[in-house]
Structures are given as C-alpha cells and as structure tokens.
C-alpha cells in the first residue's frame, strides 16, 4: 500500500517516466484556466498523498526525484517553445521537492514550497499567452528585440523569469535555499546536484530571455501590454515577494 501510494505520489511530484504523464496532459489541455489549475494543484495532490500515507521518504526515491529534476533541467536548455518550457521547469522543480521532503523537518512548510514554484509559473504562463495573442506563438529566438518594442511586457517577463528560476527575493529562492542547506549536512553530492539543477534553471532562463527581449527592434507593429495589465502583473509579483518573505523568509 505504501509503495503504491509513493508511486502514485510520483505521478504528481513527477518521477521519470511518470513525469511524461504531466507533460502530456499539460500539452493537451489548451485552455489557460485549466493549465493554471494544473500548475497549482498537481504537486499539491502529490504532497497530500504523501501526507495522508504518512510514510518516510526512502533514500532511493529521493535520488530518483533528484535525477528526474536533473534530467528535466538539462532538457530545459534546448526548449524554445515557452509553454513546453514552463511544463519542463515545473517537472524539474516539483521533482526537487522529494529532496526537500526527505531532509526538511516535519514542521517545514512543504505545501508552501510547492506553491513557491507553481505561482510564478502561472504568471509566466499568462505572459506566454500574451505572446501567443500577439505573435501567434510563444517561441524564444523567433522574434526577439521586444525590450525595445514592448518595454512593459519585457520588464514583467524578466521579473517573472527571475521568479521561476528562484532568484532572491522570490519565494522559490527560499525553497531552494532550504533544500540545499538541509541536505548538505547529510550528503554533499545531493546538495551539489541540487545546486547544479538550480544553475541549469538560470542558464535556461537566460536563454529564454535572450531569445525574446534581446536583439534589434523588429518592424512588426505589435502593441505592448496595457498599463493596467502591467500594474496587475507587477502587483502580483511584488505580492509574491512580500508573501514569500513573510511565510518562507523566516527559514527554520
């Protein structure tokens, strides 16, 4: 029963090859609202299953989670389609939670850790939709130069990407910090691998941004996002920082 619950949890806190299920479902769902729900709830279901089964995470499953996170971290480097990029980063970051679960204490806010990854991804997904509306597709390296033609959108995109790759002071930073700091005393190699996965996200994030905002201004006459929308996105990101600082900033 316990093993079954763990395998079932491995579907929602993705373990390769079960991770392919989430990526397939995410790509098949075309409605943004449902996609947002998937991003929000998928890891929470996995955590709930583990919480209900009340089992201790075995070392082999945590290592499996780490390898899954590494695999999707590497694969993320070659992704140009933004929604697939979001899906792969979600897989990589949720898989890291197995390490967090193994080494953090019982009082660690694991459900909030999962949200710290999910919510910025939702913001990024909404921004990718803005790109689809304007250009027909959200691809990095396809148009470029948006920093000059769409400065408001570019500014928000930069902040959203920084949030998903766990840059300070966004909440995912504290999740990653807790994961590395708590695993380091027990296994140096695991801590270093988590650090490498974090680096891969930064690398992939920089590649994503460079393909969208950098370059000479294109001649296409596409409107920037409205000031109101900019304010809403900015308020969401600022709230994310504040809530993250309050709920996750006081590391145990």
């Amino acid at each position: 029963m316990t093993d079954f619950m763990l395998i079932l949890a491995g579907l929602f806190l993705p373990l390769f090859p079960l991770s392919m299920v989430f990526n397939t479902v995410f790509s098949r769902v075309n409605n943004t609202k449902y996609r947002n729900l998937l991003l929000l709830l998928w890891p929470q279901i996995g955590l709930l299953l583990i919480y209900l089964s009340n089992v201790e995470i075995p070392g082999w499953i945590a290592t499996w989670g780490l390898l899954t996170a590494l695999l999707y971290g590497i694969r993320l480097l070659a992704i140009r389609e933004m929604q697939l990029w979001i899906s792969f980063l979600a897989t990589s970051s949720w898989a890291i939670l197995w390490i967090t679960l193994q080494h953090s204490g019982d009082d660690s806010p694991i459900f909030l850790y999962a949200l710290s990854f999910s919510i910025p991804l939702i913001v990024l997904l909404l921004l990718s939709d803005e790109l689809v509306k304007r250009f027909g597709a959200a691809y990095t390296g396809l148009y470029g130069g948006l920093a000059l033609t769409q400065p408001r959108f570019s500014g928000i995109l930069v902040m959203a990407v920084l949030a998903v790759i766990a840059t300070p002071l966004f909440p995912a930073f504290f999740t990653m910090l807790a994961t590395v700091a708590h695993s380091a005393p027990f296994s140096l190699s695991i801590a270093i691998f988590v650090g490498i996965i974090w680096l891969l996200w930064s690398w992939a994030g920089a590649r994503l941004l460079q393909g969208i905002i950098v370059g000479p201004a294109s001649e296409s006459n596409v409107a920037d996002i409205s000031t109101d929308a900019t304010r809403k996105y900015a308020a969401t990101l600022v709230s994310l920082i504040i809530i993250g600082l309050v709920l996750l900033g006081g590391l145990p």
């Binding site: 590395v180 708590h182 695993s183 380091a184 801590a191 650090g195 680096l199 930064s202 690398w203 920089a206």
Partner: peptide, 18 residues
C-alpha cells in the same frame, strides 16, 4: 558572467548549510 557566478553561489549555499 552569470553562469560563473552561479557556480560560486552553489559552493556558498552548501557552506552556509553546513
């Protein structure tokens, strides 16, 4: 520059954890 700095960051976070 970013990637090189991130390599140093990993070492620093692990040291802090210990």
């Amino acid at each position: 520059t970013l990637v090189t700095y991130r390599i140093g960051d990993i070492a620093m976070v692990v040291a802090a954890g210990l």
